[in-house]
Design a binder for these strands. Sequence first.
DNA 1: TGTGAATGTAAATAACATTCACATAGCTAG
DNA 2: CTAGCTATGTGAATGTTATTTACATTCACA
Lengths: 250, 250
Amino acid sequence: MSWRKEQRRAERGYHHGNLKEALLQAALGLIAEKGAAGFTFADAARMAGVSAAAPYRHFRDRDELLSSIAQRGFEQFEARLTAAWDDGRPDTVTAFERVGKAYLAFAREEPAFYNAMFESGLPVDANPALQAASERAFNIIRAAAERLAALAPPGTPRPPAMMMALHIWSMAHGVASLFSRGDAARRKLPMSPDELLEAEVLIYLRGLGFPTDRRPAPKSAEPPPVPPEASSASGVPPGGAPGGPWGKPK
Amino acid sequence: MSWRKEQRRAERGYHHGNLKEALLQAALGLIAEKGAAGFTFADAARMAGVSAAAPYRHFRDRDELLSSIAQRGFEQFEARLTAAWDDGRPDTVTAFERVGKAYLAFAREEPAFYNAMFESGLPVDANPALQAASERAFNIIRAAAERLAALAPPGTPRPPAMMMALHIWSMAHGVASLFSRGDAARRKLPMSPDELLEAEVLIYLRGLGFPTDRRPAPKSAEPPPVPPEASSASGVPPGGAPGGPWGKPK
DNA sequence: TGTGAATGTAAATAACATTCACATAGCTAG
DNA sequence: CTAGCTATGTGAATGTTATTTACATTCACA
């Protein structure tokens, strides 16, 4: 009957040795499969080969496990955004767009984390540590916006960096939620979520007066000649190159 | 012990008479309180004064109830967007912004519907009727974008309407999800979600070359003098009024 | 080595979703 | 008007989950 369980116990002894971590991993897998809603505490325990009560030695309840995962997600998220921003190299606008792409990439590549972070119904302030992690991640976007705002072409009013950051965040989150994950990805689109977001951000930046005349994602593997930051601040007339950030209009 | 139940039955007889509707209403209330995740089929039944098995005469399972609510939500959503768009009166840009506000208003005022529609984890294609309703709602935004795109100032490339629609949708959805509902609303913001979205859309439209020189939401109760549509298409230089759509920058 | 703190276990409780066999009411064909 | 079919409800299972509790096993260390 339960020789499997007995066997497993024999293999690893009475104590698991690393249960907390094992539970986190198991939960992550389950969430990836069935969503945060579908994941069950009992299943995670089973997957780790322990009884249903064991997890309570490591997490107050199901929600605490979830919030641990969300927190860890925000940490990885922050790391990826930081790497993407790369302190604004080679130039602020390029780096800024890379951040947007990193947002989508994270949503796509880490559906379990993204789900726990934004779609699990956890109250934002469930856990102070969680909230802090979330804010640290947002601060990357905010810092990038700060740098970008400082670059406002002369004569143009300088946009509030916080507002820009919130705008970019909402765009990235909107695209990710609606088009870039799981079921939502099934909506038929005329372009990929990445392209969609890139165009959106470029148009937005142009609306703020930033020159955004670069072609979208040139196919060539070689990086485009690093334009000196100064060229970004030159007085290019608003409106950008004909053709716009969305490719060739008819 | 169960005199309450007996009593209720006495009042209404063996048959409820309108159970399906009652269940939908009950579920709506429960979702508003505890979110789609927290709502239970059994609770809805109890609230309607019937046994736990009764609902199965009207819905295959819990998910079907949820998807019915989502569908109904999309229908109301469509109605509100349609009303907000008002066929583009008094002018396209104004009407377009009204649609954005209506999006937020719906998310704020109908949290239960919004939750079922976008946050319940229902697969987009769970139900053909649901999907159709969702598409009808989106088509309002799309039609509005179509009209707006046609207004592109001469000399400016005409943006693809579908893309614009998707952009606007993602902005509205992003703001609504992140800042405009329930727990998420607790994030501290320098401006209201409405203002945030309005500025975002205006900047975006300006980025497309549309003149957007109107002040944001003038405090005066009297409506601004209805500008003839033609004035929107006049060759106002891009860039808009100094000060930008976000109020007075320092 | 003895012992308290960690970590697991089994069993129990309470709530749900879902199914099934049966009860009742409404409506329709004769 | 009524026999009987169909729609709608009921109670009593079944199987699963979250969570608690009393008890068991180890670990670490004095």
